[in-house]
Computed example of a mutant assay.
Amino acid sequence: MTFEPEQLGQSGQELAAMLRDLRKQAGLSGVRLAARCNMSQSKVSRIENGKVRPSLVDVEQILRALDAPPALVTEVTALTRIANTEWQDSRSLRRKGLHTKQFELAGLEASSAEFRFFLLSMITGLLSTPEYIRASLSHVPGDHSKAIAKKLERQEVLYDRSKRFTFILTEQAARSPFLPPDAMAVQLDRLASLTHLPNMRLGVIPLDTRMPGNPLNTFTVYDDRLATVELSTGAMVFRDPRDVRAYLEEFASYEELALFGEEARGKLSEWSNAYRS
C-alpha cells in the first residue's frame, strides 16, 4: 500500500472508520473488543470516532483481537503509520505566512515539559540573536517582521523553570557564518551565556569528533510524544511512539559525545575569539 506525501497526517479518519468496520464485521461489541485488547472501552470508542490517534501498538492489539488476516494487517498497519506522520512542505508554510508556523511551535512549547534539540547545520530560533534570525530568513522573499517578532517572543519559554531543555549543536551549526564576524561572535557569546540557565543543558560537538552513524537532519523531540525532523523542502512530524523512541535513542548517542558546562563555554569562547580576530 503506497501513499503520496500529501496524504501524510490526513489518514486518521480513514483509519478510524476501517477499525470500526472491522470490529462490526467480526461481530464484536466495543466492550468485548476492549476486553480482548486489555484496553478501556472508552479508548476503543475514541479511536473508532477519530478522537484519539492510535499508535501502531494499539492497532496491532486490535488486529490480533479481531484475528485479522496477514494482508489486512499489512494494509491497516501501513495506514496507521501514515496517520501518525505529517508532512509540512515549505511552500505551503510560506503561502500561509511564516509567522503561522511560529504560533504552532509556541503551542507545542506551551504543552511540553522536556525538549531535546539536535542542531546539525544552524542555530535554532530559540537561541538566536535578532540579527541571526533575520539572516536565517533572508533567502525567503517577503516581509517577515511578524515571524521575527514571534521567534523572539518564543524565547521567553527558555526562562520557564518548569521546563527542561537540552540543545546539542555541531561545530558546523555553531560556526557557520550566517553573519559578519563581529555579529557571529555576539551570537556565540549568547550561546555561552545561556549555558548558565539552570533548566538548560547546551552542548557542542567539535568537528573532529567521530560521530555514530551519519547524522542527516536537524530534529527536535517534545517530551516522549512527538518528534519533528527538518528537511530542505519542509518538515516531517512523527507521533508514533516507535518513531519518537528512535529519535530519542539517536539523540542520546550524540549527548554522550557533546561537551557541556565549562568545556562547552571554553569551545564557544574559542570560536567567538576566532571571529573577533
Rank of each mutant, 00 (worst) to 15 (best):
G234P: 01
R164L: 13
I133P: 03
E48S: 06
V52A: 07
K51I: 06
D21T: 11
P212I: 08
L188N: 10
V76Q: 06
A83T: 04
E14R: 10
L126C: 09
M39I: 14
H144T: 02
T218V: 04
R154P: 04
Y159G: 10
P54D: 05
M39H: 06
E14W: 00
R154C: 07
D243R: 05
I133F: 04
D89S: 15
L202T: 09
W271N: 03
Q88E: 11
L72N: 09
Y247Q: 04
T218C: 05
S232E: 09
D243H: 12
P241M: 11
P5A: 09
L108D: 05
G261K: 10
H99W: 04
P141R: 00
S277D: 12
D21E: 13
V221T: 14
K101I: 04
A135S: 13
A252I: 05
R36E: 12
V186M: 10
G12N: 00
F3P: 01
A227F: 07
H139E: 07
V73L: 08
E4I: 09
G203F: 02
A26S: 12
E109R: 07
S29N: 06
E131D: 14
L179R: 01
D58K: 00
F251L: 10
L93N: 13
T129D: 01
V229R: 02
E262A: 15
S272Y: 06
A16R: 03
L169G: 08
Y159V: 06
A246K: 12
A135D: 09
L188V: 09
E249S: 10
R94A: 15
A26M: 00
A149Q: 11
T129Y: 02
V59P: 01
K51N: 12
T77E: 10
E109C: 04
G203H: 01
S42A: 15
S92W: 08
P212C: 06
L197P: 02
S272F: 06
F117L: 10
V76T: 08
S193E: 14
T129E: 02
R190I: 11
P212S: 06
E4S: 14
I168Q: 00
L257C: 06
L158P: 04
S128V: 02
P70R: 14
P70E: 15
L119W: 01
T166H: 07
V31Y: 14
E48F: 09
S128Y: 01
L8V: 07
K101Q: 13
T80C: 12
G50R: 03
D223K: 03
E262D: 15
F103Q: 07
Q25W: 02
A35R: 15
L226G: 01
G27T: 12
H196K: 15
T170W: 03
K101R: 13
T228Q: 03
L56F: 00
S121I: 06
S29D: 05
V59K: 01
K150N: 06
S253N: 10
R210N: 07
P215N: 09
V204R: 01
L226N: 09
P54L: 07
M18Q: 08
K146R: 14
L98F: 00
L108I: 05
L259G: 06
Q25C: 04
T129Q: 05
L158I: 09
G203A: 05
F260I: 13
N49I: 04
S176M: 13
E230M: 03
E263I: 05
L33W: 01
R201F: 12
P198V: 13
Q13D: 11
L127T: 06
L72G: 11
E263W: 04
K267H: 14
A78N: 13
C37Q: 03
R265M: 13
Q187R: 10
N49L: 15
